[in-house]
Design a binder for these strands. Structure first.
Length: 599
RNA sequence: GCCGACGUAGCUCAAUUGGCAGAGCAAGCGCCUUGUAAGCGCUAGGUUAUGGGUUCAAGUCCCAUCGUCGGCUCCA
């Protein structure tokens, strides 16, 4: 696949501008606290920048105004950014009272890590950048002077806590997030995008469209789905299920609780026991709510008897409700819940089949993402990091990585690599899809596992008559139904394609006289397989149309005496477009065509 | 879990420096019989998240708990 040559963000003017804005902000904060500040790091990020500080008191959103004012003053001073190369000793002298900077200097000297955490060549030059009264340890690059920042094209957005170097064992620093652009118009556009994202927030739309609720009586992260919400879930799962069946997947069912011992053997217990709901103890047996399916599916494979290589690949799919005890602060609407339904699948195959099974899964994923109109996605090859949870078995890791890389290369998919993103048992190909607002979500995943099958004693008899350990591919298309629904709500702004919409057509009678016909027409549409409803309320048709349109029902069918006489309805789309009166059969065809087309 | 902010009717929001808890929408009832984004009237709706405290007086100030949000951490 042709690789586009895009300018690296680090080399763009925007990057310099945001980096400089971070320094200006740091100066403003130092001035606001009369120098009683320990500064940490402040890099540019996507769409903006941040800076971390240790301060004598907590910042509140009210402080942002004062910091911004300070920044504007510095900008107007047109202070040059002066670069200076220094020795380690000079650097340490300059930052004698700045413990975080000293730590960074130590890191630079030992050639370990630069401020954003990426690798740098051994012992690079140490550089300072100074503007006005503020000097920072910094690699640059920067603008020429602070006046190149437009005072009307940056804005501070929020304050937040952040651990020093992203490690929760370290001190919690205070982070100020800001955004900066070349022109005030670009800033305005960006703020508009933020506002648009807020309007599409699935938590807001879910409430407005009556799809789901959270209740303090049920518990945090445990969503309740209304009839409409369940209808959506059902459509989503039915669609994936049918597609999987067409691709030769089989569906299994493995329940909700499992003996804890199984997770000790699979390795999950060691890595995730804190993220499991507390154990249920019955005499000598300890159970856990099921937080993942792999051990259950693998156990089922084993219990089904001795397998021949002729049976492989076997593809076990399940829409399984899992329970994960996510930390309270990690919960977020439907995108991060404690009860989730995974469209999980485990493919048991021979090492030789990995490539073709990967290709099949890829094709399935592509088809499904297209149906959901996620046209823009890229693949992240998630590899193990240098330290942490990863199972120590270098040979198997290399085998798995090689298998995955080969499969990706053969498939022609464009991918990038990310260290430290693998599962503890193997590398992953994660599908990162962009929604209509350009935000990226991790949706589908294909993972290669050479570890668990052996741990759980899986085998098959090969052509050679000997027993071998199968490879398992873990695969999810939509990830979890809850999370994917949350993403879909935002992607479509609640206006689901007709095939997915909980109510596809709403019939609106103009007067009470039309109620009988309305119900009859609704019945015949239902019979044709459509999901319809009719509004028998006492309001006027205008109010009913407005209500239907706000609830984003694809087809609004208005019925008065004229339509009743002609045996049809006047068709109005949720866009407001009026298609005029049409006979009932034509309306059914129209809607069925939209369902088939996926629009 | 950590840092910070927030929590008022089903929903969206008001309520001077602490001084009688309100509106719109939704709901219920009634009138109107309607032609493509809100017809009119009436009624009901609250232990101001929960539990303590300060005060003559607390939605408002203090403490704790729960929950939500913005981040951090984590995401099998």
């Amino acid at each position: 696949m042709a690789k586009q040559t895009v300018e690296r963000y680090e080399e763009t003017e925007l990057y310099r501008l945001r980096h400089s804005a971070a320094h200006v902000m740091a100066q403003a904060v130092v001035q606001l606290f009369a120098g009683d500040v320990r500064v940490a790091i402040g890099p540019p990020i996507e769409d903006g920048f941040y800076y971390d500080f240790e301060l004598p008191r907590s910042l509140t959103p009210d402080d942002l105004q004062a910091i911004e004012t300070g920044m504007r003053r510095i900008v107007l001073g047109k202070h040059p950014f002066v670069r200076r190369e220094v020795t380690a000793a000079e650097a340490r002298a300059e930052f004698g009272a700045q413990p975080y900077k000293l730590e960074l200097i130590d890191g630079l000297v030992s050639g370990a890590k630069a401020e954003a955490g990426e690798r740098v060549p051994a012992a690079p030059a140490i550089t300072f950048y100074t503007q006005d009264t503020f000097t920072d340890l910094c690699r640059g690059p920067h603008l020429e002077h602070t006046g190149q920042l437009n005072a009307q094209s940056f804005k501070l957005l929020s304050v937040a806590g952040a651990y020093w170097r992203g490690d929760e064992k370290n001190a919690m620093l205070q982070r100020v997030y800001g955004t900066a652009w070349r022109t005030p118009q670009e800033l305005k556009d960006y703020l508009w995008r933020l506002e648009e994202a807020r309007k599409r927030d699935h938590r807001k739309l879910g409430k407005e469209l009556g799809l789901f609720h959270f209740s303090e009586d049920i518990g945090p992260g445990l969503p309740l789905f209304t009839p409409k919400g369940e209808l959506l879930r059902h459509q989503m799962e039915t669609y994936v299920r049918e597609t999987q069946t067409r691709y030769g997947y089989q569906h299994v069912w493995t329940g909700h609780i499992v003996k804890e011992d199984l997770y000790k053997r699979s390795g999950h217990y060691e890595n995730y026991k804190d993220a499991m709901f507390p154990p249920m103890v019955d005499d000598n047996i300890t159970f856990r709510l099921k937080p993942m399916n792999c051990p259950s599916h693998m156990t089922l494979y084993r219990e089904m008897g001795l397998h021949s290589y002729r049976e492989l690949p076997m593809r076990f799919a399940e829409f399984a409700t899992l329970y994960r005890y996510e930390k309270s602060g990690e919960l977020s609407g439907l995108t991060r819940v404690r009860s989730l339904t995974q469209d999980d699948c485990h493919i048991f195959c021979t090492p030789e089949q990995v490539g073709s099974e990967f290709a099949l899964a890829l094709q399935l994923i592509t088809e499904i993402l297209n149906r959901y109109r996620f046209a823009d996605y890229r693949v992240r090859l998630s590899l193990r990091g240098t330290a942490g949870k990863y199972v120590q078995d270098p040979e198997k890791w290399e085998q798995a990585e090689a298998a995955l890389r080969t499969a990706l290369d053969v498939s022609g998919v464009d991918y990038y690599e990310a260290e430290g993103e693998a599962a503890f048992y193997g590398p992953k190909a994660d599908f990162m899809a962009r929604d209509v607002l350009g935000r990226e979500w991790q949706l589908s995943t294909i993972q290669v596992d050479f570890i668990q099958p052996a741990r759980l004693g899986l085998g098959y008899i090969g052509e050679d008559g000997r027993e071998h350990v199968p490879v398992v591919l873990h695969r999810a298309v939509t990830g979890s139904t809850e999370r994917f629904l949350g993403v879909l709500i935002e992607h479509f702004a609640g206006a689901f394609p007709t095939w997915l919409a909980p109510v596809q057509a709403l019939l609106v009678p103009i007067t009470d006289r039309n109620h009988g016909y309305c119900q009859k027409l609704a019945a015949s549409l239902s019979e044709a397989g459509l999901r319809v409803d009719w509004d028998g309320g006492v309001e006027r048709m205008n109010a009913k149309i407005r209500k239907a349109q706000l609830s984003k029902i694809p087809y609004i069918l208005v019925i008065g005496d004229r339509e009743e006489e002609q045996g049809g309805a006047a068709v109005r789309l949720r866009s407001g477009e009026d298609l005029g009166a049409k006979p009932a059969l034509e309306i059914i065809d129209l809607i069925l065509a939209a369902v088939a087309a996926g629009t």
